[in-house]
Design a protein around this nucleic acid. Structure first.
Lengths: 156, 156
DNA sequence: CTACATGCAAAGGGTTTGCACGACA
DNA sequence: TGTCGTGCAAACCCTTTGCATGTAG
């Protein structure tokens, strides 16, 4: 579920704005790290983002990637799958979308589905805080893992 | 969202059945580790489960807790929040339920809501594998974190 | 009795932190 | 030019693994 080239450009502009507004410096590394997540389809983890960015910024360090991703999370420019922080996998797609997660191998597929975008949140839940995004998460076993059943562990 | 005492007993019986069926030994540790997750409300992580079990089985070791939780996942007796394995938080509540996750502090609240239990999965998604559970995940900011805004970081 | 499970300790990986150098504003 | 960001390396987790001992079946 890749963003288009134009969408990426928009998001980059938005990033620069956000940074300037808050007096946070616009560095080459921050731009490229964000670009890497925005361009990538899928839900890259830190390691994958690091490898991608290094192709364009060979001197970037792993801890800068960590620090930048946490910064982008705080700014609300990225989200994570599942609870934040812990071994996170990042997502720059802020359009409402939904997930199919394989409970064997953990692979996560995005999909769009209009009917899932308008779910009414129960009133008592509304009171727990400020609601920001509603996503449907379907857990199951992906085709690949189904084929592997009985052929030993496909984990990790 | 605690299970009742009776539900815990049922789940324990079910666990013993599952283990025996597969010729896996029913040990004191396995029973108590499962009980700990089943009894606990919330979504304990490994550390918390370890501390709880140690009150009743003081000699249990952390790696046994890890091994047992992975075993229980494989048997389908537990689930995790978000993708499996990575820094998992466990859930023994296999009834269909939904989550509100605070994107600041990561706190996760369960809720039941009948309308969310019967969502129709799009056909093209059905084809990706075997669908097992559909959950709605609402991300937002919890009351507590909203009150803390501007008072410095409330993270971690 | 035998195979499997456990506990211990050490190794392995991922993430965070402290500090001096370098780059944006 | 001053301040914030970066890179490096070491520290700090959390998780997994190897092996001898213990125990359920």
């Amino acid at each position: 579920m890749k963003l288009t080239a134009d969408e990426v450009k928009d998001r980059m502009r938005h990033l620069e704005e956000c940074l300037r507004e808050r007096g946070i410096k616009v560095t080459h590394q921050r731009l490229e790290i964000f670009r890497e997540v925005a361009q990538s389809g899928g839900h890259p983890d830190v390691e994958r983002i690091y490898r991608g960015v290094r192709k364009r910024v060979p001197t970037v360090s792993l801890d800068t990637v960590y620090r930048t991703l946490l910064l982008l999370l705080d700014l609300g420019l990225l989200t994570t799958l599942g609870p934040p922080r812990d071994r996170a996998r990042f997502d720059a797609n802020m359009k409402t979308h939904h997930h199919f997660v394989c409970s064997k191998c953990g692979v996560t597929q995005d999909f769009y589905h209009e009917a899932f975008n308008q779910l009414k949140i129960p009133d008592r839940v509304q009171e727990w805080g400020r609601m920001e995004r509603t996503q449907v998460e379907i857990k199951g076993t992906c085709e690949k893992c189904l084929r592997n059943i009985g052929k030993g562990s496909e984990k990790k």
